[in-house]
C-alpha cells in the first residue's frame, strides 16, 4: 500500500459518501444519473467476485463491502425510495448503457490477462469502470444547474483514478514484475474522460462562479 493508492481509495470512498449523504439527507437525486450508478454496481459486482475466496487484507475486504453496499443501496434509493425516485430525471438520463456494457464484455473476452471467468470479469469491470461515468457527464451537460454536491461527487470520482495512476507509476518502479497494462490503460482512459469536466470545475472554482458545462 502506498500513499497514492490510499489517497485514491479515500477519495473514492468520499465520492460515494458525498452521494449517499446527498440522497439520504435531502432525499433528492436530482442531477444524478441512475445509469451511471447501475454501471458502478455492475463494476463492483464483477470486480469483487473473489471477495470471499481471495483474502488480501481486512482493509481490502472492508472497502469492497463498503463499495458494494453503497453502490447497490444508491441504485435501490433511486429506483425504490418513494421520495428520492421522484427527483430522478428519467427523461434526461437516457444514455443507453447497454451500448457500454456489450463492447466492454466483448473486449474483455478478447483482451484479458488470462482466459478464465474471474480474469475476464476483472477485465470487464475495468473497461466498464472507465466508461461508466459517461451517462453522468451527458446528464450534467443537459441539466444546466449542477448543484455543489453533484459537482463534488463527479470531481472526487475523477480524482480517485488520477491518484491511482500515480500509484501504478510508483508500483511499477518499486515492485519487480508489477505490470498490468489492462488496468493502466483503462485507468488512463477513465481519467482522461474527466479532463474537460476538471477544466470547467477548476474554472468555476477559480472564478467563484456556479459550475456549468457548455452545451
Amino acid at each position: 500500500m502506498n500513499i497514492f493508492r490510499l489517497a485514491g481509495d479515500m477519495t473514492h470512498l468520499m465520492s460515494v459518501l458525498v452521494l449517499l449523504l446527498k440522497i439520504h439527507t435531502i432525499k433528492s437525486c436530482a442531477g444524478i444519473s441512475l445509469k451511471t450508478q447501475e454501471l458502478y454496481a455492475l463494476v463492483f459486482a464483477t470486480r469483487y467476485l473473489d471477495i470471499f475466496t481471495d483474502f488480501i487484507s481486512v482493509y481490502n475486504t472492508i472497502m469492497k463491502l463498503i463499495f458494494l453496499g453503497s453502490s447497490f443501496s444508491i441504485v435501490w434509493y433511486m429506483r425504490r425510495h418513494k421520495l428520492v425516485r421522484r427527483s430522478y430525471d428519467k427523461e434526461q438520463d437516457t444514455f443507453r448503457h447497454f451500448f457500454l456494457v456489450l463492447p466492454c464484455l466483448l473486449l474483455a473476452l478478447v483482451m484479458n490477462e488470462k482466459f478464465t471467468f474471474k480474469e475476464v470479469m476483472w477485465a470487464f469491470s475495468l473497461y466498464l469502470e472507465a466508461v461508466a461515468i459517461l451517462p453522468q457527464l451527458v446528464l450534467l451537460q443537459r441539466t444546466k444547474n449542477i448543484d455543489n454536491l453533484t459537482g463534488q461527487y463527479v470531481f472526487l470520482l475523477g480524482a480517485y483514478r488520477a491518484f491511482y495512476i500515480f500509484n501504478w507509476i510508483y508500483r511499477y518502479f518499486t515492485e519487480p514484475h508489477y505490470v498490468h497494462w489492462i488496468t493502466w490503460i483503462s485507468g488512463l482512459v477513465q481519467t482522461l474522460l474527466y479532463a474537460d469536466f476538471f477544466y470547467y470545475y477548476f474554472n468555476s472554482w477559480k472564478n467563484n462562479v456556479k459550475l456549468h458545462l457548455p452545451a
Binding site: R5, H12, M63
Partner: peptide, 10 residues
C-alpha cells in the same frame, strides 16, 4: 503451474 494473479487493488 502458473500462479493465479490475485488482484490486490480495489
Amino acid at each position: 503451474e502458473e500462479k493465479e494473479t490475485t488482484h490486490d487493488e480495489l
